[in-house]
Amino acid sequence: MRPVIESKDLGIEFYRSRRRKMSLREIVFKGKNLAPKDTFWALRNISFTVEQGEAVGLVGGNGSGKSTLLKMIAGVMIPDEGGVKVRGGVAPLIELTGGFLGELTARDNLYLAGGLHGLSKAQMDERYDEIVDFAGPQVRAGMDMAYRHFSSGMQVRLAFALITTLDEPIVLVDEVLAVGDRAFREKCYLRMENMLAGGKTLFMVSHSEADLRRFAKRGLYLQQGTLVGDGPVEEIIEQYNADADAAR
């Protein structure tokens, strides 16, 4: 069976000092070439494969390129070198509330965001109750309210409930398990475990050792844009902690 995620020599280059924006004023007064050419590789030579059903945790310090890697797997950023092949649909638990608009009601938002992730209206009708039940009674009571009147916790709960019902074979998680209150977090964990048990592939970024140990079997360790470790999650966490302690 072919791997579901296959990254080969993946690399992406960013501009360092400032956004690569040019303004007309600068071109007119300073000449065009003043835009700094100072770049760095946020990720480079990243090669790995993930088999179906694997649970992979991505470890690394701030700015090591974890989220960027996740975005490229999700297809919302394009690599400058190499590429990543993803076989199957992706449920991205990244920027959860990205598809939601403050001024529309929660209900409209749910259908809209579902539509953006490829669910038809009929499919949404089918799943509506399940999603809202999972998000909790507070959310259900406010489904006809403007989304911006939701508390941020409720906003994320609804979004989490939607994305996790997408039924895609690959689940990408970027630190979102840290949201919601204690009771809801436990619900999220259970759902994640169910998804894993159902044979889904999990690819998660987390700074929480507890989350990593709970969900991931395998760890990938990123250090300043290079992949420096790939192995059982326990070993990778040890390696990461050892490096972090040594740097202190």
């Binding site: 297809g75 598809g99 953006l116």
Partner: peptide
């Protein structure tokens, strides 16, 4: 931008 960043369309 938020939608563009979060959906692979």
């Amino acid at each position: 931008s938020r939608l563009v960043r979060s959906t692979n369309l």
